[in-house]
Design a protein around this nucleic acid. Structure first.
Length: 480
RNA sequence: GGGAUCGUAGUCUAGCUUGGUAUGAUACUAGCCUGGGGGGCUAGUGGUCGCAGGUUCAAAUCCUGCUGAUCCCA
């Protein structure tokens, strides 16, 4: 009884979209807010974000990047200063038009992104080559009105993210920074979230409006759709000119600076849910799991209870000493089976079951969430738990890699392209580099160039669409 | 951008055609029993029927507008 209401009621394979929403809500990561397109993060969801944030902060700091804070309101006059950029964002900007009952002359935008605001300040802060490089990251939210159906973490009108903005004295240094950031993104997503990504450039059509070029990391989700996991843009001098971000070089000649901007959002959490979750619910990689181990004590009378609880206390102490995030589920009146299912729904990586039978033969049952495997360990093998968690982290990435590989195909024939795109997946298909072909393919198949992987230049093949000589082999896919 | 479906307790839902103050499950609270994969019994708590207006003696039900959600198509 009640099984259907508490757990996930659809299979990931049969109804991916519904499955996803149920996992988010039932694992208590997030909930819908009373305003269209907005969601509320609950502690388990926010905790994952905090974990990612702390990892990124460490890596950013090591790279000389510090955190700052920018206000959420940007005057229209400022936002409109870089024309292409403005045109790109304008349709989805929320506007503040009144303060109290008074109409505001220069309307205020709720930031869709902060380039214009940041660079207005940067132009004040930078005068000399000695002020460079300037590297600041901002953790905040951005607001972009979503007209399409929204989905928690993947498409929401307000989202948590970080936006980094750096300024450099040379083009080379700025371009190096773009790649350095992309590398940080890639290894963080792979190591922390256990999701494999492919890095490369966006096509001209898909790049960030205002950037000279955009580098990106993309992942293929289990439903065959592509998800953009993060982007790092080379802005060249496109913003430094209108915003007059200038510096006097050593030779006392004034130059426009070279800039980058980059960001990842809580969409990464959505990717993690999709990549690892199963029909029982969420599956969390140990590194970002708010709770890494849950201990379920099992007993039926006070006498057994005492013995079990004292063992559980020992386990708790031992794991806490090793900095493992551990929780004991001592809720009364719930059957062990209920608890097992409950923690599986929430995705806790390891569960330790311990009852009278275990005490008797000095053992414990350890259940791995990601493959639902149960093993029996001796009580003194509690020392092994950190290693088991590390193994799980690695195995989850391997599993995701192999799934990702299965979803990737080399396709050179357009008929085959059209047919197979219905099932989704990443298609490595040669391209002539022309916008017309890119547009046509998108129009006819719904697939777009997600990423032109680094080192995918290839002029020996024929464009999958027009059959003229190729310039590269990008990854085509339908996206989120 | 176009189309479809839907909104009733924390959650899911009956009732709507044919107007008369809301059904059941689950969850929650208490007690007892139970306990190694979603337990049982008993007794309770919980609702401006998405919002606003209209028709009517009377609206969850009929009408209008709004709003939110889900799915499909471009």
């Amino acid at each position: 009884m009640g099984k259907q209401d508490v757990g996930i009621t659809v299979s990931k394979k049969e109804d991916f979209s519904e499955w996803y929403t149920q996992v988010v809500l039932k694992a208590k990561l997030a909930d819908y807010a009373p305003v269209k397109g907005l969601i509320v993060l609950r502690p388990d969801g926010y905790s994952i974000w905090e974990s990612l944030r702390s990892t990124f902060d460490k890596k950013f700091a090591r790279n000389g990047i510090r955190n700052g804070f920018l206000p959420i309101l940007i005057p229209e006059s400022l936002l409109g200063k870089e024309q292409k950029h403005f045109a790109g964002f304008n349709p989805e900007v929320f506007w503040v038009t009144h303060s109290g009952t008074n109409e505001i002359g220069d309307r205020l935008a709720l930031r869709p992104t902060s380039e214009t605001l940041a660079y207005t300040l940067y132009s004040k802060w930078i005068q000399s080559w000695r002020d460079l490089p300037l590297k600041i990251n901002f953790w905040n939210t951005a607001l972009r009105a979503e007209i399409k159906a929204t989905k928690p973490f993947l498409r929401t009108s307000e989202f948590l993210w970080q936006e980094g903005h750096t300024v450099h004295s040379t083009k080379e240094e700025a371009e190096k920074e773009v790649l350095k950031i992309l590398e940080i993104y890639k290894n963080t997503v792979e190591e922390e979230l256990a999701i494999p990504v492919i890095t490369g450039k966006k096509s001209e059509k898909e790049k960030f409006v205002g950037a000279e070029y955009t580098t990106t990391m993309e992942s293929i989700m289990p439903d065959g759709k592509a998800l953009q996991m993060g982007t790092s843009h080379f802005l060249a001098q496109n913003f430094s000119k209108p915003f007059e971000v200038k510096f006097a070089d050593k030779d006392n000649v004034e130059h426009f600076a070279w800039q980058t901007s980059w960001g990842v959002s809580w969409r990464l959490i959505g990717a993690m849910i999709m990549a690892h979750g199963d029909d029982k619910g969420l599956v969390l990689p140990p590194k970002v799991a708010p709770m890494q181990v849950v201990v379920v004590p099992i007993y039926k009378n006070a006498e057994d209870g005492e013995k079990v609880i004292s063992k559980v206390d020992e386990i708790l102490d031992s794991l806490e000493q090793k900095s493992i995030r551990v929780h004991v589920d001592n809720r009364e009146g719930l059957s062990p089976g209920f608890k097992f299912n409950d923690w599986e729904l929430k995705g806790v990586p390891l569960r330790i079951e311990i009852g009278p039978k275990d005490i008797e033969n000095q053992s414990m049952v350890v259940a791995k969430r990601y493959n639902l495997e149960k093993i029996k360990l001796n009580l003194n093998e509690i020392e092994k738990i950190p290693d088991i968690l590390d193994e799980i982290q690695i195995e989850m990435l391997e599993k995701a890699k192999s799934e990702s590989k299965d979803n990737t195909k080399n396709i050179t024939d357009y008929e085959e392209f059209k047919e197979k795109i219905e099932d989704g997946g990443f298609f490595n298909s040669p391209w002539c580099g022309k916008l017309e072909c890119e547009d046509k393919i998108k129009e006819e198949t719904g697939a777009e160039i997600r990423v032109i992987p680094f080192n995918s230049e290839d002029n020996t093949k024929k464009c999958v669409y027009c059959k003229e000589p190729s310039v590269s082999i990008p990854i085509f896919a339908r996206g989120y």
